[in-house]
Structures are given as C-alpha cells and as structure tokens.
Simulated scan of single mutants.
Amino acid sequence: MIIAILLYFVLFFGIGFILNMLLRASWVMAVLYPVVVLLIIDSLGIGAYFTNPGEAFSELGTSLVQLPLADIIILSSGMVGAVLAGIVIRMLRDRGYQMF
C-alpha cells in the first residue's frame, strides 16, 4: 500500500507538473483529477452517462460508497500530488522561472 501511495503521488505530480507547464495554467490536473478518479472507479463507459444517466450515476454513487479505505487513501495521495504540482508551478513562476 505504501508503494501504491507513493506511485500515485509521484505519477499525478509529474503529470500535473507537465500539463501545467505546457498549458500555462496552474491548476489543470487538480481540476481534471476527480474526472480521472471517477473513470478509474467506474465500471461503465463514458457513453452510459449520456445514454442512461439515471442508472449510470446511481451505479457511480454506489461504487463511491463501497470504495475500501485503502483505495480512498491511495486516490487521495494522487490528488495531493496534483495539487502540489499546481503549488510548485505557481511558486516557480512567482520566482521568475518561465516554463515554455
């Protein structure tokens, strides 16, 4: 579990840092991360939310409630990494580093 926590933190910090650098925005990954988490948790495809939204959102709510504590901790570490990437980019830009 410790390895998974570190992996998600580093993975989403790195992805968030690169996206923030390329798109010149500080919080891109922090905004996109909940969507990524929902895609990881959900067993339905994206199209189900448009073709049968009532059942799809109901199943998503059930999946979220039944999520084990270990998964919540691991996915939360990814969110911390995404938010920290935004903070680091903002600090670097305030100190004069221009990335792309």
Rank of each mutant, 00 (worst) to 15 (best):
R93W: 06
L39D: 08
V28G: 07
A85G: 10
A4C: 01
S26N: 14
L39G: 10
A30W: 00
I18Q: 07
L60R: 02
I73M: 03
M1D: 04
N20I: 03
F13S: 04
Q98P: 01
F57C: 02
V31L: 15
G96I: 00
L69I: 05
L7S: 06
G61Q: 06
L32R: 09
I73Y: 02
I2L: 13
N20P: 03
G78N: 00
M1V: 08
V80D: 02
N52K: 14
I40C: 03
G45D: 09
V36P: 01
G81D: 07
R95Q: 09
M1W: 01
I15L: 14
L84I: 14
A82N: 06
V28Q: 06
A70F: 01
A48M: 12
F9G: 05
L64C: 10
S76E: 03
G47T: 07
Q66S: 14
G54D: 06
F12S: 03
F57A: 07
Y33E: 00
F13V: 07
L92Q: 10
D71I: 00
I18W: 13
T62I: 13
D71G: 00
Q66K: 09
L22M: 13
A70P: 00
I18G: 09
G16D: 05
G47M: 13
D42E: 13
G14Q: 03
I18V: 15
M21D: 10
V10F: 15
L92T: 10
A70T: 03
G61I: 08
L22S: 12
F9Y: 05
Y8H: 06
T51Y: 12
T51E: 14
R93N: 13
V35Y: 11
E55H: 10
G54E: 06
S26I: 00
S76G: 11
M29L: 15
I46F: 15
S58Q: 10
E55G: 09
L39M: 12
L44Y: 14
V37Q: 05
V83E: 03
V37S: 01
I73N: 02
L69R: 02
V37T: 04
L39E: 08
E55M: 13
L32F: 11
I40G: 02
G86M: 03
V65K: 13
M91L: 14
Q66D: 14
I87D: 08
L6H: 03
Y97A: 12
A4K: 04
L84V: 11
M79E: 03
I74D: 00
V80R: 04
P34K: 04
L64F: 06
I41T: 12
G96A: 06
G45Y: 08
G16W: 01
F57Y: 15
I40H: 06
S43Q: 15
R90F: 11
V10H: 04
V10D: 04
P53S: 10
L19A: 13
F50K: 15
I3N: 05
G47L: 14
M1N: 05
I5S: 00
Q98W: 07
L67S: 07
A48T: 07
A30Y: 01
V88C: 12
L6V: 10
I41R: 05
S58T: 13
R95E: 11
G14T: 11
V36G: 01
L84A: 12
L67A: 07
A30Q: 09
